[in-house]
Amino acid sequence: MRRQASLRPRALRRLARNRDGVTIVEFAMVGPVLVLMIMGLFDMAHTQYTSSVLFGAMQKAGRDLTLESGFTRQSTIDAKVQDQVAAVMPRGATVTFQKLSHFDFTDVDKPEDYTDQNSNGRCDNNEPYVDSNDNSRWDADRGKDGIGGARDVVVYQATVTYPRIFPLFTMIGLSQNVTLTASTTLRNQPFDEQNKRITTVRNCT
């Protein structure tokens, strides 16, 4: 019995000094974090590359859209952007376009003017406003749908949504989809006289 008792401390000391299999234990702790970091880097790199391709395609498409021929080639121009971006995106990606025309650069991203009679920061209660885009309602962006006419300023925007190439969203709570937006603002070529600015005054509901 005494001999067995004296052997126990020795066995415990040998066990404490034993390093067999420690690499597997360390990798089990470090491996998942390392793999997650690598996938995250690849995911960010792919997003940046896709964004670069999208911005490049939009710049070329925007210039084509401002030509006089752009009025009849809108669907072709959109398709070219979609094809270029689709080449670097995974399956299931969607591309949507928005085109808003303005009378001048100073109108871009500006709300329609209105008189805030009740000082509540909203156009309501029959308050008068200038219907710049002539759609019979007050808008936070006074741009008019479409590419307008000669000399008009066009904001051409594309929004790309696609599923992530790595399943990071399930591990660290990221969104399942990536959404990228690119836009370009250019003035249409002076191939004709510019239409007059609309100054119709209406009332908010």
Rank of each mutant, 00 (worst) to 15 (best):
W138V: 02
R19T: 12
G62D: 05
L41Q: 09
R122K: 12
T72L: 12
A45I: 05
A57D: 00
R19D: 09
L180P: 05
P32I: 04
S119M: 11
V53T: 07
R13Q: 07
T106K: 09
T23V: 15
R13K: 09
Q48P: 00
V201R: 14
R17L: 10
A11S: 10
S51T: 07
T184E: 03
I198T: 13
Y129R: 08
M171Q: 12
L186I: 15
Q157Y: 00
C204N: 07
S6A: 14
V81D: 01
D78F: 08
E127M: 13
M37G: 14
M58I: 14
M37Y: 05
L41T: 15
A86S: 15
T170M: 08
T161L: 02
M89D: 00
V33Y: 02
Y129T: 02
D113R: 00
G121P: 04
N133K: 10
D116R: 14
N135L: 04
T161E: 07
S175G: 13
A28D: 01
N18A: 14
A87C: 05
D113M: 01
L180V: 05
R8M: 11
M171V: 13
R14F: 04
G56Q: 04
A93H: 06
S75A: 14
D134N: 13
N118F: 13
D107M: 13
S183L: 05
V88Y: 08
P111V: 02
D104P: 03
F103C: 04
A16I: 01
R13I: 04
V25T: 09
V22F: 15
M29E: 01
M171D: 01
V53R: 04
F191T: 05
S132C: 04
N126T: 11
T161N: 06
Q194W: 07
N118C: 11
G143M: 08
F55V: 12
R63L: 13
M37H: 04
Q176R: 15
S175P: 02
G92K: 09
D20Q: 12
S6D: 05
M1H: 09
L67S: 10
K80D: 06
I77V: 03
V30E: 01
T199R: 12
G92I: 12
A140Q: 09
L15G: 06
M44L: 15
N133W: 06
T159F: 05
R197N: 12
H46Q: 09
E193A: 15
M37N: 07
